[in-house]
Amino acid sequence: MGIDFKALQETVKQRFGEQVLAWSEFRGQYGLHVKSGRIVEVLRFLRDDPATKFVMLTDVTCVDGLKLPETMEQGFPERFAVVYHLYSLEHNDRLRVKAFVPEDPCEIDSAAGLWAAANWGEREVFDLFGINFRGHPDLRRILMPANYEGHPLRKDYPLKGRGERDNFPKYTEIPEA
């Protein structure tokens, strides 16, 4: 049981060479940091390769690196990191894949063709972080209202909002039926 991450590092390096930025390891959890260009190929390889078989996409989320301290900035080449948590039922192991996305153009290819779970997960990232997933079948807001402006989980979005509560539309007199 368990995946041989040393061997996996070699294979990924051979196949995707310049795409790989770094590997991280913390308390037994491994992370693969890649550029966003060929992300779908990387994920497809990790899903289908018999040595990994990450058949389950546990979660898709995102981290905004805007306010990271200087000591952590080297590991964060672009503003956003889309984070995929993969799980292999066969090998009972996890892997975190981080793909870095610049602020402009804020785009990455969608993984919805690989796992159905990516559909809603990416919709949420689009909604709260404003990252466009190219090729997503149904890219709409999911948690915030459809006419909402802005992306609340970005670090430059204030905690108390931009006055939406104060400017909430309301009737000043009782409308005619």
């Binding site: 546990t58 979660d59 989320t61 981290v63 905004d64 306010k67 990271l68 301290p69 000591t71 952590m72 984070v83 948590h85 159905a116 779970a117 559909n119 809603w120 997960g121 949420e124």
Partner: peptide
Amino acid sequence: ELGFYIVSDGTGLPYRIRIRPPSFYNLAT
């Protein structure tokens, strides 16, 4: 599976907390 993904910048406040809710992915089906 209830997951928590925490990114820490070394201060007393977490830099990012993600709750991986089971209901969200279950309802997608």
